[in-house]
Design a protein around this nucleic acid. Structure first.
Lengths: 204, 204, 204, 204
DNA sequence: AATGAATGAGGGTTCATTCAT
DNA sequence: TATGAATGAACCCTCATTCAT
């Protein structure tokens, strides 16, 4: 069978595993439960993964990549505007059933990584990349006068990064109906970053 | 009767369980491992807890209460000043080995709660209480002119709450040495909350 | 403490154990459950019995002796009449709550004995004694013309013995309300043993 | 799929469990002991049974059905004769090693049922069916003049039923060598049921 | 004499993994 | 490829027993 099929099957398994993790927790991800979720036999799993740990990692990656892709989609191009900020962040938050699942899995990953060095390393590398990207965008906006430059770019980055993680963590424990409202305040926060001149211009 | 304080023994067990969770993860908390960590036999555990689940809950509570107590300690009285804000929040963050353990356990709890309704309910209730308390303090400070009142108190609360969770989540994955520096930016943020007059006064 | 107290305490323990066996089965007789049933601590048991097996045996004996005593009570003297037969046997059957418990325990003993040589030996010896006594009584009655002598005494004994065990076994699984009626047929059976002459006399 | 007949494998497990119960008692039926008796690993058991309780029930049923089948085999047809009575009952008694095992297990079931409502219900239903069948056969024989009709059919049934249980209970505690002789008396008892006319004819 | 904390073997059960089919 | 029967280690928990108090 061709490689592409093999890979797409791996993704199916990873997604099913992610569903199980999101719905019932990492401890509920057993080979039997996964086979049932997939509607196949236990033995199939070992054709695509060498161990359960590989499956767990794949499920984590599946969720992670989907959150990233979701945000990437919301980023227009390489010429960032402050007005893009809110949509992009919203795209990264668990504000619908799909991203809710992804975040549940990602939070499992983060907790998992606390005591699993390999995963921790991966998580930290990814985080660092993301933060670097963010930092560059913010500095770029400051250079272009789209974001007030009297606040250190690094501080804005750190704040935004921590805030998003914390928001996601808290939103995912909130009923879906109230999440939009709960995250609305971010909009006001972002306004604080607008350069004073344009601020005035806007409010005028 | 042998002289044993039942409650304090329960706390010892809960603490040992928390150590295991923090060090090796929730999955590593087995009765055997716990007995070993405690330096006693397996059977002891059932004297103090009816099930492993009870032990897990106790460990979660142990950590939770310690973080709360740590913050409580840092709160001077019921007459809050903005200058207390940073120390209080710092007291709540994982900035030393002790609170690092507590936060590792708490993060395990939060992930656990995602798929365990009972725990989720408890977590949400605790969060709600904490947010209410925070909201009242902030509003109080606004009334007393110690915090700028042109920002909605609820927004400040939500921001602070999400930010702290997110910071903790990220700090705990950072080497201890860099954590103080990494959390320093909060100081600047809090300055933004200072009333303009006093801000001027200060900067003057 | 005096011997008599020690012995009476043993009896209390044995009775409590019997209650547990009768109510919930032999497997439910644990040291914890027994201590609770007695309203004392676990440690007490080891003052009166060296092992749980001893307790089990004592419970079995307690029930056995009560059934025997109940029958003994119903036997007038050493000059047996056929008219005594039915009352005596009825006294030996589980026809009220008290004897129901005793029989439940005895049936547990009999099943236990199937795979416990020591107990089997005891049971068989007791059975043999009882059958010998019965045989002598029946032969005596035959000699005195109170029981038809055209049936072998040994056969009557064997029948009666098997029948009583079987009745008890079946009665104990029947609701208490129906047991008297269910055992009534024995009366008719005993009439069959009446010598033909007295039979005629009676029916005349 | 490996070629394994699921149902027949269940029967194998049930039989092995029955052997253990018969040989060492219900308490000796542990999963580990059963796996050893079967010559397989512990995990196999959970492929065929969801719990140990299911295994116990299956073992009980296995024994029960074998006793029933043994008796069924001995029943010629639907036209019962008194001369069939003894062979049929003998077929139901523990007079060889095979039926000895079955009865040991059945007696364990009966004692088990005393404190396990579900099993009790099953046992009582089966008993009731058997007694109904017996009653009909006896009444049939009376109608056809093959069994004296001056004794109530119900009484004969009750007697026979109690007697068989009692005999089995007592035989199984008797060395195999003596059992045939011990049960011989039943033959004489059955003769008492023969209609007087044929009785006369026979004795003449 | 009485208590109940402590022990650790052994209970039923679940699990990831292997492998003959 | 795909199946699911088989494995046995490890899980949580209960147990009879011991023993310091």
């Amino acid at each position: 069978m061709r490689k592409v099929d093999h890979d797409s099957r791996r993704q199916e398994v990873a997604e099913a595993a992610a569903r199980l993790i999101g719905r019932e927790g990492l401890e509920a991800l057993t080979t039997r439960a996964l086979a049932k979720e997939l509607g196949c036999s236990i033995g199939v799993l070992s054709h695509y993964f060498n161990s359960k740990e590989e499956i767990v990692i794949a499920a984590f990656q599946w969720a992670d990549q989907r959150i990233d892709a979701r945000m990437q989609e919301a980023i227009a191009g390489n010429d960032p505007h402050l007005d893009d900020f809110f949509p992009v962040i919203k795209a990264g938050l668990p504000l619908n059933e799909e991203s809710d699942l992804e975040w549940r899995v990602r939070l499992n990953l983060h907790t998992f990584a606390l005591t699993h060095g390999e995963s921790l390393k991966t998580v930290r590398e990814k985080d660092a990349q993301f933060r670097d990207l963010m930092l560059m965008m913010i500095a770029d906006m400051q250079r272009k006068g789209r974001l007030r430059d009297d606040i250190d770019a690094q501080i804005v980055t750190d704040t935004a990064f921590d805030l998003v993680i914390g928001m996601a963590q808290n939103l995912v424990k909130t009923p879906m109906a109230g999440r939009e409202a709960r995250s609305e305040y971010l909009f006001g926060l972002i306004e604080l970053l607008r350069p004073l001149s344009s601020n005035v211009a806007k409010s005028a």
